[in-house]
Amino acid sequence: MSAINISALHPPEFILTGFPGYQGLQHWIAIPYCIMYILIIVGNFTILFVVFSEQSLHQPMYYFICMLAIIDLVLSNLILPKLLLMLLSEDYTISFQGCLTQMFFIHVFTVLESSALLTMSFDRYVAICNPLRYSAIFSNSFIMKIVGLSITRGVVFIMPLPILASRLPYCNSNIISISYCDHMSVVKLACADTTLNSSYGLVVIFLVVSDMSFIVFSYSMILRAVLKLGSGEERQKALHTCGSHLCVVVFAYSSATFSFITHRFGRALPPEFIVVFACLYLILPAMLNPIIYGARTKEIRRYVLNT
């Protein structure tokens, strides 16, 4: 099929799925999502304000926490404003190009979040297992290189997804099964062979899984080093320092894994469950991350309580 014919089969817009079976309760459903949105904005901006205001927090670990906060802010703003608009005005449409744009940025920042978690695990590994070289390794120039490499990696790996999706004809349906434009949810609507799209989607998933594998390896080495520390106080301090990172890592990857399973193998699940979880797996980490770091990081907690 020629490129012209394929472009002719692009729908002018897609229809996002709200909460099937709860049309009369859409305004009430908007309330908890609005509260979560406020908590995300307040929590993550608080983290950013505290770190940049307190000179003693100008350290690599806190810079990476800020990086994660920025990613969470962007991800939530890619999803929640449109979701709230859907619930309050019942406008479920999104343009074809707008859908591909949203797909691109959601997946780029999802990969960026995985990169941030991987970098934070490496930061803790060096700080605990090789503390004498920590300052030399995590210089400002090295941090900037990590950020630049993470962004480049995200863009390069994700760019093929909307390009491949734009080359497919969509002649069966234009109703997306969730409330935002996810790659597989859009590709499922195509009336052509989507093997290439699905295969490349698995490549991206493998990238994220490889990040998770390196994180597990880093923390296994950290645990090994902690157990060799002389005093129980030193062990407790080291474990407490890593505890907040581990909480975020476990929650982020477990929710992402469950979302992957429901997307690919969850046809028997109720559609309303898939819609709710598809949103929450991106929204909940953005809301809980600043709470976890605020509660478990003594320096951040002390600054917030004293202001």
Rank of each mutant, 00 (worst) to 15 (best):
E90S: 15
S173A: 12
Y134G: 00
L202N: 12
G43W: 06
K298T: 11
F260I: 04
D182E: 07
V204D: 13
I292P: 01
P290S: 06
S259P: 04
I143W: 00
I71E: 15
A225T: 07
S210K: 09
M86W: 06
S255Y: 08
F122Y: 01
F19S: 05
F142P: 00
F96A: 05
G18V: 15
R296N: 11
V276A: 13
L284H: 13
W28S: 11
A190W: 14
T17E: 04
F49P: 00
I65T: 07
T297W: 04
I31P: 02
D193W: 14
L100E: 00
P169T: 09
L288Y: 01
Y63V: 13
G230F: 14
N289H: 13
A165H: 02
C66R: 01
N174I: 12
F258P: 00
L202C: 12
C129F: 02
I151G: 00
N44F: 06
P285D: 10
P290T: 05
S198T: 08
L132S: 03
H107C: 06
I261S: 06
C191V: 01
F206C: 07
K298A: 10
F109H: 10
I65S: 03
F214L: 15
A225Q: 11
M36H: 04
L207Y: 15
I178K: 01
N130L: 01
T93I: 05
K228I: 13
F104D: 04
S173P: 13
N306A: 14
V42M: 03
V248M: 06
A136V: 00
N172A: 15
Q55F: 14
H240P: 15
A190F: 13
V50E: 10
V111W: 11
L207I: 11
S255E: 03
F96N: 08
A295D: 04
V147Q: 03
T46N: 11
P169A: 10
K237R: 15
G21N: 08
Y22V: 14
L269I: 06
R302A: 13
L73S: 04
W28M: 08
R133L: 08
P160L: 10
P290G: 05
L161Y: 06
R264T: 03
L168I: 11
S89A: 04
W28V: 14
V248L: 07
F258M: 03
S76R: 04
Y134E: 00
Y303V: 02
R296W: 12
L9W: 05
A190K: 02
S139T: 00
K145E: 03
A165F: 06
S177C: 05
G294L: 09
R224G: 08
M221G: 02
E54D: 02
H58S: 09
Q26K: 09
A127K: 01
S53K: 05
S53D: 14
F277S: 10
